[in-house]
């Protein structure tokens, strides 16, 4: 059964590696829900976190195929029970109606979000949480009017001593 899973891996921080990773997913027909990339404490390496919807056979294949890539150093399928996964999203909300402004501020507060910018007619809020929480925020805020949004994709670390 297809389920949403998170795979984290360390890659060489070199040009073209992101292309090769995404090319692998495309070529084998794996669907990426989200991908996030950034350098780690060692500047020669980057860490990628991919969220995919797949059954467990395909997930194993994705891990094995990534592991085979010369540029991929370590790869691991993260156990959701032992992982902290977060995602950040920015929202531009139409607040020309004072009621809307009040309500959106309340939502942002409820989700422990931050107001980053206020214009006469718009505000920009930041909400961080696990992907389900962000989905929930979107659902609640949509009726007010989300003008524009941008999500970073999931990033994740394992708990305790566990590491990649």
């Amino acid at each position: 059964m297809a389920q949403l899973s998170t795979i984290a891996f360390l890659v060489e921080n070199k040009p073209g590696v992101l292309f090769k990773v995404s090319n692998l997913f495309r070529r084998r027909g794996y669907n990426i829900e989200s991908i996030s990339v950034g350098p780690v404490e060692n500047p020669e390496l980057s860490r990628m976190t991919v969220s995919v919807k797949a059954d467990s056979r395909i997930l194993n294949q994705i891990v094995d195929q990534l592991d085979k890539m010369v540029e991929v150093i370590k790869v691991k399928r993260l156990d959701p029970m032992r992982t902290v996964a977060r995602e950040m999203a920015l929202f531009k909300i139409d607040t020309s109606d004072p009621m809307a402004r009040e309500e959106s501020l309340r939502h942002v507060n409820n989700y422990h979000g931050l107001i980053l910018n206020i214009d006469p007619d718009f505000l920009i809020a930041e909400v961080t949480g696990d992907p389900a929480t962000i989905d929930e925020f979107i659902e609640k805020t949509s009726p007010i009017g989300i003008e524009e949004m941008s999500r970073t994709g999931v990033t994740a670390l394992e708990k305790g001593r566990l590491k990649l």
Binding site: R57, N60, Q61, D64, Q65, D67, K68
Partner: peptide
């Protein structure tokens, strides 16, 4: 020798 071929 190629793990990714197993169970493919």
């Amino acid at each position: 020798i190629d793990r990714s071929e197993v169970d493919k």
